[in-house]
């Protein structure tokens, strides 16, 4: 299995997961890169993205899995970059060794913006909130009959650093990646619910790194 490491920024942030898969399939064709296809009546390119990114998030550490058939891997990034839409940049293409299940944590930078400056006491309120013993939030679930399920965020937050700047508060979060994972939007929702005075006017999410159990980069 080969892996393509790429970042997603600027206008490309708004390309959804499904559209991104389609965009990559077409980009491989444009770039003249043959990749393995599924067998069957309507063969399609065999590509997957282990941890889909929410629409609107930027990322420096996306990974796409595929099987390149016709090129040395080091030629892949330049060729793909010429064929991809603005905002998606491929950094590396390599033989994937570590299984996806070893991908344990994701590091997010969550920037909460306040038009009138960060409210007094917001930073410590958020810090206290994230230091609680338990923090239960409702989240949507396709499986549950009610369409909702309760989750305790605390065990899913490995580390949280809160830092106030002039008109933003930045959260540097290391969250569980999978089984179950935690979407940082839920952390912001918890802040809105429990610290209404610290509710931001706008939030941006950036995925900075994907990590293994020992907090080393997972590749």
């Amino acid at each position: 299995m080969h892996r393509v490491a790429f970042s997603k920024a600027d206008t490309a942030k708004f390309i959804s997961h499904l559209d991104l898969m389609r965009t990559f399939q077409r980009s491989f064709l444009r770039a003249g890169i043959s990749i393995k296809h599924t067998e069957g009546f309507n063969p399609h390119a065999f590509v997957s993205i282990p941890l889909p990114l929410s629409v609107g998030f930027s990322s420096a550490c996306e990974v796409l899995e595929c099987q390149v058939l016709n090129l040395p891997l080091e030629e892949v990034p330049a060729r793909l970059n010429a064929a991809l839409p603005a905002g998606i940049t491929v950094h590396r293409c390599y033989e994937g060794v570590r299984p996806v299940k070893e991908l344990c944590y994701v590091n997010y930078i969550v920037t909460m913006e306040y038009e009138a400056g960060a409210p007094f006491g917001a930073e410590s309120a958020i810090r206290d909130l994230l230091a609680r013993e338990c923090l239960v939030m409702e989240k949507h679930s396709k499986k549950a009959k009610s369409g909702k399920v309760e989750v305790d965020l605390i065990p899913l937050i490995h580390r949280a650093t809160v830092e106030e700047r002039r008109d933003t508060i930045a959260l540097d979060l290391i969250l569980r990646a999978q089984n179950p994972g935690l979407n940082p939007e839920l952390v912001v929702e918890a802040i809105r619910t429990h610290c209404p005075d610290a509710a931001p006017d706008f939030v941006s999410f950036h995925r900075r790194a994907v990590l293994d159990e020992n907090l080393q980069n997972w590749e």
């Binding site: 600027d10 559209d19 839409p85 603005a86």
Partner: peptide, 12 residues
């Protein structure tokens, strides 16, 4: 569908 409003497509 915000991707409709950003531009930046291939060949734009």
């Amino acid at each position: 569908k915000p991707a409709r409003y950003t531009g930046g497509e291939y060949n734009a």
